[in-house]
């Protein structure tokens, strides 16, 4: 078994309104920053032991399917790295 960190990034699907991101963008603009758009995402870093990177990827994907993301509003991606 090898130690991996699976990073699951959960984003709102394209076109789904993100009031929190809009509020954050407005707050940045009030501070004088110039920006065209802002998107926010949730990132989960999951440390796990797996036989190989594919297995770690698969298990993290299952976690996203079962709990971390809601398929009605979210897309997600998984990236796996071996832990030092």
């Amino acid at each position: 078994m090898t130690g991996y960190t699976a990073t699951v990034t959960v984003r709102l699907k394209h076109g789904v309104l993100d009031p929190e991101a809009e509020t954050t963008q407005r707050a940045l603009e009030r501070l004088g920053f110039e920006l065209e758009d802002l998107r926010s995402a949730d990132r989960f870093e999951i440390d796990l032991e797996a036989a190989d990177a594919d297995e770690a990827d698969e298990r993290a994907g299952e976690m996203a399917d079962r709990l971390l993301a809601n398929p009605t509003i979210h897309d997600y991606e998984v990236a796996v790295e071996e832990r030092e």
Binding site: V16, L17, D18, P19, E20, E22, T23, N70, T72, I73
Partner: peptide, 17 residues
């Protein structure tokens, strides 16, 4: 109920935030 699949759809952050 939505999260548990009793009904379709999802309820998320109000437009007003």
């Amino acid at each position: 109920g939505c999260e548990a699949g009793l009904t379709d759809g999802a309820f998320t952050t109000n437009r007003s935030a």
